[in-house]
Design a binder for these strands. Structure first.
Lengths: 161, 161
DNA sequence: CGCAATGATTACATCACAGAATCATTCTGT
DNA sequence: ACAGAATGATTCTGTGATGTAATCATTGCG
């Protein structure tokens, strides 16, 4: 056995990723949103006017799922559907005024979330960790923009957990 | 805004954790298991004779879920149920011979998995990352043993993705 | 001895999600 | 300009994962 150190990094990433996701879910739930909805608001904040199709691709889910997702945001008054004049099959989705306010609120949440997660590390370590994780994401092709599903990962990892 | 660097570490952890979990799922699926089942085998390998109740607590799921989980492993001939003599309500779960073999197979998978994930980092960086993640896990109370669910985290994180 | 607590099990409800079919609209080739 | 393919949104339906409550046998405590 050449590399006999157990497979810990994969295990830790799974654990910490699950933890980070769960905590984030809880925080956004406190302002009445799901993480998916938060993702929609984020994208619309940076790129108003995208279609449901675009959104679905970006967030890594199917079109049909997007319908109910946008329905919820529309009923909550955070997102507006406008028929595109260029292509009347599609909508141009935009944030309402309330949607913009909610997005700013979410950014505050993200900062608190970050502080909770990385707050125990001293600044140099935090920077170092950021660099290492970024490198990893790049070499693994984990794109910040295109999201690739995210299913359960119960009990796994074999050599840890 | 004091810390104006966007909340990237939480985001990266979620992304990379999802990626790691998904890839691990795929790999264990190739040997006919789910990640949950792999988790059961791992624990039984280190601690034979535990009950379904113990297992459920350790893996962070409910008792009722454990029934079908063990059923599958039992039918596959990897795990054996034996009535406990001390407490005849519960079972003592153990790995069969085939279960032990499967566990060794899983350990090989975990090594390949680790190599895929962390392989792009040079050894010193990999060690550094391991230390940082371990510190994080410790200070966040993310225990390697007690697993805390793991639900979807679609589209979230607000300031990235 | 009798009642509360506990392990395993079953039955039931719910929820997220994917996939197929549908409808309106747009695009493409000729 | 027109017929057929492609595309965006929507609806419907099936499936799988999971939690909760009820049930049964057994144990432990007073």
């Amino acid at each position: 056995m050449p590399t006999h150190r157990p497979a810990r990094i994969g295990f830790l990433l799974s654990q910490l990723g699950a933890h980070a996701s769960r905590r984030f879910d809880e925080r956004v739930a406190e302002v009445g949103l799901t993480a998916q909805q938060a993702g929609v608001l984020r994208i619309l904040g940076r790129q108003p006017g995208v279609s449901q199709r675009d959104l679905a691709d970006r967030l890594g889910l199917v079109q049909s799922r997007m319908v109910a997702l946008i329905d919820g945001l529309e009923h909550a008054g955070l997102v507006a559907r406008t028929r595109s004049e260029a292509d009347r099959r599609s909508y141009e989705l935009t944030l309402t005024h309330a949607g913009g306010a909610k997005l700013r609120e979410l950014r505050g949440i993200a900062e608190v979330h970050e502080a909770e997660l990385a707050g125990s590390l001293a600044t140099p370590q935090r920077d170092e960790l950021f660099v290492l994780l970024s490198d990893l994401a790049t070499s693994l092709g984990v794109d910040a923009e295109v999201h690739e599903g995210y299913r359960a990962a119960q009990g796994g990892e074999t050599s840890g957990r």
